[in-house]
Design a protein around this nucleic acid. Sequence first.
DNA 1: GCTATCTAATTGCATATGCAAATGGCAAGA
DNA 2: TCTTGCCATTTGCATATGCAATTAGATAGC
Lengths: 249, 249
Amino acid sequence: MTQTRLDAVKLDGTGPIYDQIRRAVRDLILSGTWPPGTSVPPEHALMEQLGASRMTVHRALVQLAREGLITRRRRSGTIVASPPASHAMLDILSIPDEVARLGQRYAYEVLSREDGRPSAELALRFGLKRGEKVVHLVTLHRADDKPHVLEERVIHLVTVSAAADEDFSQTPPGDWLLRNSLWSQAEHAISAVPAETDDAQLLGIKPGEPCLLVERRTWNQAAPVTAVRLLYPGTRHRFVGRFGPYGAV
Amino acid sequence: MTQTRLDAVKLDGTGPIYDQIRRAVRDLILSGTWPPGTSVPPEHALMEQLGASRMTVHRALVQLAREGLITRRRRSGTIVASPPASHAMLDILSIPDEVARLGQRYAYEVLSREDGRPSAELALRFGLKRGEKVVHLVTLHRADDKPHVLEERVIHLVTVSAAADEDFSQTPPGDWLLRNSLWSQAEHAISAVPAETDDAQLLGIKPGEPCLLVERRTWNQAAPVTAVRLLYPGTRHRFVGRFGPYGAV
DNA sequence: GCTATCTAATTGCATATGCAAATGGCAAGA
DNA sequence: TCTTGCCATTTGCATATGCAATTAGATAGC
């Protein structure tokens, strides 16, 4: 359990007090200053430190709890929650988990790796600037030995410098990043494309067969972290989501 | 502005009072008793009717407002919100809106319609029981005159009986349903499939070209409402979503 | 050592109170 | 008629207070 520095909580004076508190704590969590497992100061302490009433502090923390950033228990106190490993809707971030959920055996291999500045073609494909140093990886994931998804990824070394010293032989890059990087925003797009000849061969399908292409880019406070293209054989794969009229269920 | 019957709000005695109030109001909204636009009684009135303090009523309503079920304005009061026409992530429910967002001109035509009990093939495709009476529609949506998406839909008459008397010449079935039916749950799946010969011709592409297939089924309290298959030419279409580590942004 | 009991820390909930902010609608005035 | 200003209604926010529920950790008893 990490020690918490109380004076790290700073209000900015704009908007309602409860919301200032909420944002202050949220920012400490999202910035990584208070990593998952950190205990958040009790309402009492925050109340004194900030000069607000307990109910006001309470309101901020209750809201953060509903947003899933913290978990609270009587007497035990409040701790920073771990981000959910997989995401609602269509975004399952861990491919090993995804395969396990299908009840199949997972395996993967790194097909290629290049470090350094991107080639013109690579920069174009992932929208990189030529100067940015990246790790470029191609990985094939298998389920019960059959090709499951082909992953092509760049990792920005300026944001995730540790990636230079990791060989990804034990942990696939997506899972490694989940544990070794922070992200605050992601964007992804899904489309259907025909398989290129090379990719088709790797996936064990015919060229031109439909594939689901998931492209995802991830940032931490405007700094790029990673970008990935996941190519799924379309006839074998589908994304399922469940929701209600006012939001995800 | 619909008149609101105050005594419709009934607490069930289980759990915190603020949550009883929240659920009571929520249920009145989701059941359609208070349709969108209805004005919710002011905090004062609820406070007296329920014998709770204003702050407790307030807490319930504030939470419903954050969930998007109601909108509140000082002095004007609180009204039931309209369900968002389009949905976060990948689910844009209104195809006219989707096309308008691309800055293109929208048009559509109903290619076929059959009412009654489904054929064996249709029942299989949509997972229907043979006895269920449905409307079966095939609709082609165009953007700037080019085929945009091919829609095949069944509407369950037992749940949406008004569909029998609607010819869908003015409003496409998806939009008509948004206004003329209630739903509480939906499930959708996205996959990539090759275009069948017939579908390819309608969409103006070659047979076997990749398409994005969105299959969505919708229920209201366990009763099926509608099921739809949307076939998008894959190379022209993509779904985009944006989110953060703890949920949609 | 093990168990039952107690204590106190911490969050959860509800109430009462007061003031602030926004604004629909009325009234007065031009 | 049109505009301006005022008032009453309604929600928004913050505080103070008190008690309930949970439970980690200490203590006492065996």
